[in-house]
Design a binder for these strands. Structure first.
Lengths: 217, 217
DNA sequence: GAAGTTCTCAATCCATTGGTGGAGGTGGGG
DNA sequence: CCCCACCTCCACCAATGGATTGAGAACTTC
């Protein structure tokens, strides 16, 4: 490989402090140049089109467009674009969807500079770079069935602490139907009761933690 | 106030990227000097004793010693030490305990540079600086009773998805006693069933999300 | 030593939840 | 056109969970 080619990197991250940190770290590394920064999904797309970076570091949870959406859109028009996903917490669902969308690697924000640089170089040279622990869980998730939209609705309500009766009236269906959905989603999640379903949903990022404080009617 | 006095700041944060970001941001601000960095609680105490910073920016969740423990110990020996707490997610419990321990302000990692600098100046000049939204929830929490140790044990098991029977055998008490504890902790948390208790516990940071993947026997 | 807190346990009662099996209706894809 | 996935609903049953009341033992605090 051409050791002297400079890798052009774009940093997409809504947290100002983290973005600054990444840029500061990368700017002192030989062979890597930060060609731009973006703080939300829409901005990210603009910047990527403008700068055509070799590698884009991208956060998943952002205003306006999520990281996954950005990856999908860009890879539609530029399939050779390479993405490294950044997240704070390694929620399974996020990884899964990002890699589905075509991300080539995955980094936790607690990483070392070495991790960061190694991963950028690897991805730039065409490799994927998934930590074993994550690859492991990803493989497990592969065999798992997806929740249907309606099952997801019910799960969301369970996480919000609603009873079957409340869920039924909220979704305007009968309590019997709610039970049916619960029964099948318990199976798909591999758990045995609603409390486990709720914590699993939060832990895997199926239902975001932020949604909890909101809308409590 | 003396506008020409340089504020000596110490940054304590285990995430390398975030720490770099804070230092990079602060180093270009007039009147603020970063005198040191630490990546865990024990290191933090050493650095604070050595550099005697005016203000310490400190993360709460760290290896070896938590931020709260660091604040408690330092304020025992140096009550005039001032702390600004940093966290990613505004879990109520963390704020509560940190402010109890003597922290003077609270910042989310999604803050702007302005927030950061304003807060540091305010805290250095002796003020507290709590965002209204957080002060609000803090006030609500004030009237709330603390969980007893045993109630906490039970709540932890609930979050891990155990049934009353399993909790009873795990804690080596009768199922009746488990029910008693649950009954009183539901009241204290202001919820009506175990699923709500579980999500409330996670949301408020009473039981950390990280503990979920571990120990599942 | 009296008062308060916590932890322990029991009995009873009713509501909620989860398991099982079956069934009709819709809409899309082969 | 038929099959399949999904959504909807019913009935029945067993298990679990939560509310209530009451009470004894251990420990701390005043």
């Amino acid at each position: 490989m051409a050791a002297e080619e400079t890798i052009r990197v774009l940093v997409v991250e809504d947290h100002h402090v983290v973005r600054q940190g990444l840029v500061a770290l990368l700017n002192v590394v030989d062979g890597i140049e930060v060609v731009g920064e973006a703080a939300d999904g829409v901005d990210a797309i603009t910047q990527i089109r403008k700068h055509q970076p070799h590698v884009t570091l991208i956060d998943l949870r952002m205003p306006r467009l999520t990281g996954v959406e950005v990856i999908q859109r860009i890879r539609m028009e530029t399939p050779q674009a390479r993405f490294i996903v950044l997240t704070t917490y390694d929620g399974d669902e996020d990884i899964y969807r990002a890699l589905q969308a075509g991300a080539k690697a995955y980094l936790l924000k607690g990483m070392t500079t070495d991790d960061l640089v190694t991963t950028i170089r690897a991805v730039h040279s065409g490799k994927s770079h998934i930590p074993p622990a994550i690859a492991q869980r990803l493989a497990e998730r592969m065999g798992t069935e997806e929740l249907t939209p309606r099952e997801f609705d019910v799960l969301e309500q369970i996480v919000h602490g609603r009873s079957n009766k409340e869920i039924a009236s909220f979704l305007d269906i009968s309590e019997a139907t709610v039970k049916t959905h619960i029964n099948s989603l318990l199976g798909k999640l591999g758990v045995t009761d609603r409390t486990q379903a709720a914590t699993a949903a939060i832990q895997r990022g199926i239902v975001p933690l932020e949604s909890l404080r909101k809308q409590k009617p």
